[in-house]
Nucleic acid binder design. Sequence first.
RNA 1: GCGAGUGUAACUCAGUUGGUAGAGUAUCACGUUGCCAACGUGAUUGUCGACGGUUCGAAUCCGUUCACUCGCUCCA
Length: 443
Amino acid sequence: MAEEKDNVLMEKVVSLCKRRGFIFPSSEIYGGINGFWDYGPYGARMKRAVEALWWHEMVETRDNVEGLDSTIICHPRVWKASGHLDQFSDLMTDCRKCKSRYRVDQMEDPTTCPNCGSKDLTEPREFNLMMKTFVGPVFDEEHAAYLRAETCQPIFVDFHSVRVATRQKLPFGIAQIGKAFRNEINPRNFTFRSREFTQMEMEFFCDGEDGMKWFEYWKEQRIKYYREKLKFSDDFFRIYEHEKLAHYAKAAIDIEVKFPFGWGELEGVHHRGTWDLSQHSQFSGEDLQYVDHDNKRKLMPTVIETSVGLDRTILALLARGYEEDTAATQKEGMDEDVRIVLHLPPLVAPVQLAVLPLSKKLDENAVKLYTDLNRYFRCEYDVTGSIGKRYRRQDEIGTPLCLTFDFESAADNAVTVRDRDTMQQQRVNISELRSYIENAINR
RNA sequence: GCGAGUGUAACUCAGUUGGUAGAGUAUCACGUUGCCAACGUGAUUGUCGACGGUUCGAAUCCGUUCACUCGCUCCA
């Protein structure tokens, strides 16, 4: 029952995204391509806003976190060292009779289906989640390369260069926003699991003795970010503590949010120990240990990782924000009508402020106001249709504030500011407008 | 990758036994109104997911394929 309702919500969100230009299928005129999605004008704005917010929180306001923008294609040995190439090229076989699929290395008897006992199995086939390409014009194995499956590996690879260039001492972090690619067997749930996606990752390097302390610190920082910046309420997200840890990890939590299809991972905060740098030291032959001059010792830094799925963040905000409530209408024979509204956090709303003249006759003055405010906020100007209709359009794309320039505005130097969530209006003097909006957006 | 379902305008959907497509909403223009999808008049929009077959004729029947949804499987 609840599931059915949630699927309806998901469909509505997908429909809104398409209709209003947040997200649509990639290559749609050719029939689409499974697992790839394009961000339209509003989606792109929103994505940029979330990136900017994260970058500001994680890099710009911290003296001990540096930014990086590394390549998508790295030396193939990077993925040997990380384990991606070996561990994720599993041999799989399908049972033709009961349609189950198994990893060959996990089967007691690779010739018999553990489920139905049939011997009618497909030839074992290799499944690798890394996307492959070729560097150079010759397409042979010698020139094979892979698109990065996560943005963190290049951070480890560049660790030494970043440290030297910035003269950072432990503890310090390196952050990166960028695309990652995985050949997911089955992309699902809109943009939740796609084959090309954007990650926002930060690797924090510290002395192993302080590992758990920093793990707790970053966990707390990230939770705070969701609460305070993205306005997540306690019933919308939860912390999942890993009981079964990856072979290299010392501690791990996922920050999960309530998607229409169920709880899903949004961010991982992981204590990765010294595994990554050790691996790259070993495979590259470069000593990536940190030289602690103060205490005259060398140590392999321990890594605490915070890893966010940006596309998942956008999806979570859209799905959580979607609401259909009722509002007064002037339509004949009706008192109330359905209002679709996206309750997006003002910090990341694609449009933060819409400037709407009450009448076309007021166009000139209103445009001036719009041009001025557009320097400070993400603004949109709209003069078409009735004022009510324009409010509803803005509600649907999640614009927190609408500013209406009316027939008195020129005389009293004030405009009406209308709130998306409450639909309440307030008269604000134009001279105080900027600080009023700033205050409302950052609340 | 397997199984089931779905695919008609930007959106939601109708389309009778095969006779080359409609509605509402949206969008645009003009008029009117002037604070919550108002009203009137008019206009635009589809290779009916794609390809192929059967047929005099296919949105409709058949095959293949692509995409989406759900269930398996996978998810470092």
